[in-house]
Amino acid sequence: MSRTEGKADFVVGDETFQTWYEIVGDLKSGIRPLVTLHGGPGIPHHGLLTHDTLNKVHGIPVIFYDQLGIGASTHLQNKPKEFWTEALFMDELDNLVNHLGIADNFDILGHSWGGMLGSAYAAKRHPAGLKRLVLVDTPSSMDLWDESCAILLKGLPEETQKVIQKHQEAGTLEDPEYKAAVQVFYNKHVCRLDPWPENVLESFKGLEADPTVAGPNEFYITGSLRGWTVLDVIHTITQETLLVNGRYDEAQDICVAPFFEKIPKVKWIHMAESSHMPYYEEAERYFRLVGQFLSAP
């Protein structure tokens, strides 16, 4: 299984940035490649690395990359929140698939924010070369995400809820007490494995090292994504689409259902023992079903 790293120049206005990427497998194999879109925004690619399973089992070339502002791509700590737009990340994705020479034939798998980006890209850019779309733990709007997380927060111990509310109201989001309370939520609804896999820990280290692109945490949204939605355009997605979410997921069914109701060619898989990372929590079933979807004629 070959691995090739590189960087693609990405021009924004009169500035040139770099997008780091890694290719697992051979883009010349004749098998349609898969571009993976990590979550966050601002959580680098490491958590998705187990998707190299799709290359091992099915021969699918898998492309990982760090979106602008995080990981091994160009960091831009001085850019205002208005810089970090959906259009910017769609432009970066366009640039990457063109750089790799796969713009005429590729699939996308997006996790969480990556699925939001992938769904918007399919619905608004209508890329001719995009054949199949996988949306993993993906909300169709931030309002529905907020509603979902609010329901889950009410399931936490009362004292934990009070700590979270107190610090959010005070703006003391760096307080260790707040971070510990947030971790209680994460352990129930982000990844239920104990301990967390090393790749997941590495992703969150990347977020902590440079939180420029992201909000303070998974359920307290303050940046440019607040109010984000694709509810008005997802009916225009023409690609065969696979939805995946988990029983304990931050992206509860209320977040995912609009995709199922509005995308013409869609299948929905529910993972009974997973939260927000089914590719770790129920890896065998997850990769079997995703692999079947991507490799089907």
Rank of each mutant, 00 (worst) to 15 (best):
A87R: 13
H75R: 15
K131R: 14
L193T: 01
L49C: 05
T16I: 03
E15T: 06
R3E: 08
Q239V: 08
C191N: 13
T16P: 01
L135C: 13
G129M: 09
V200T: 06
E240Y: 13
I70L: 11
V11F: 00
K166C: 02
V35T: 02
G118I: 02
D91H: 09
K131D: 11
E92V: 03
L48D: 07
K79P: 00
H111Q: 11
S119W: 05
V230Q: 13
K166R: 14
D249Q: 02
W228V: 01
I31K: 05
V57K: 10
G69V: 11
V97W: 07
L173E: 08
T212F: 00
Y248T: 04
K188A: 14
L144D: 14
H189D: 12
L34I: 03
G101D: 11
T74L: 09
I60S: 05
A122M: 03
P216T: 04
R192M: 03
D253T: 12
F259Y: 15
K166N: 10
L153C: 07
L96R: 11
I43M: 10
N245H: 15
Q239G: 07
G47M: 04
V163H: 05
S112W: 06
K162S: 13
D9P: 00
R125I: 05
L135G: 13
E198W: 02
S148C: 01
G13I: 01
W196G: 02
T74W: 12
E22L: 04
G246W: 10
K205T: 10
Y279N: 06
A150D: 10
T236C: 01
I70D: 01
T222W: 06
I70Y: 03
E273D: 14
M142I: 05
N98I: 01
V182P: 00
P44A: 12
A209M: 11
M271H: 10
H276M: 13
S148L: 06
I234M: 15
G118E: 08
L152I: 03
Q77D: 05
K166P: 00
P33T: 03
K205A: 09
Y286D: 10
E281N: 08
V184Q: 12
H45P: 03
Q165P: 00
I151A: 07
G110H: 01
K166G: 01
E177H: 03
Y248M: 07
V35D: 00
Y21C: 06
M142F: 04
H51E: 01
N78A: 00
D66T: 09
A122S: 03
V136I: 10
L133S: 05
P127Q: 08
G291M: 06
G114S: 04
L144W: 00
H75Q: 12
D94C: 11
L96I: 04
L27F: 12
G246A: 13
H38E: 13
V163S: 05
E177M: 09
S203E: 12
Q67A: 10
Y279H: 06
I108V: 15
K124Q: 08
A180H: 12
K188P: 00
Y248S: 05
G227H: 01
I237C: 10
W196F: 10
H235V: 11
G155S: 09
L135E: 14
P264C: 02
V24A: 11
R32V: 13
L242T: 12
P216G: 04
Q67L: 05
